[in-house]
Amino acid sequence: MLTLTCPCCGVAAEETELAPGGEAHLKRFGPGASDEDFETYMFARKNPKGVHFERWRHAYGCGKWFLAARCTATLEVFGTYPAQTTEPPADLIARIKTRRPDWEGCK
């Protein structure tokens, strides 16, 4: 039962208040995209044992989507940040690298 802090309203929300939304920072491929690109966008999801960037919605709170960086093995939360971004903030990346020196970074 995770707790994540919603960056929009600041509430440390329990998992029952949240709805998961899968992998963050997907790039959408629409008409004109190759079958391979569309397949990757639609179906291929990262499933790392370790650092993962995820979408969550504060569904029973402020209703806003946000993103979270979390270790899927230990459930350590490195940080949460607004959904309106195409990549994780630099300070978050730095924090993750401190906590997980072997992490290979966003790929």
Partner: peptide, 13 residues
């Protein structure tokens, strides 16, 4: 409604 908000908040913000 959630579907609309998802696209508005996360893709076409």
């Amino acid at each position: 409604h959630g579907w609309m908000e998802d696209w508005l908040q996360c893709e076409w913000w």
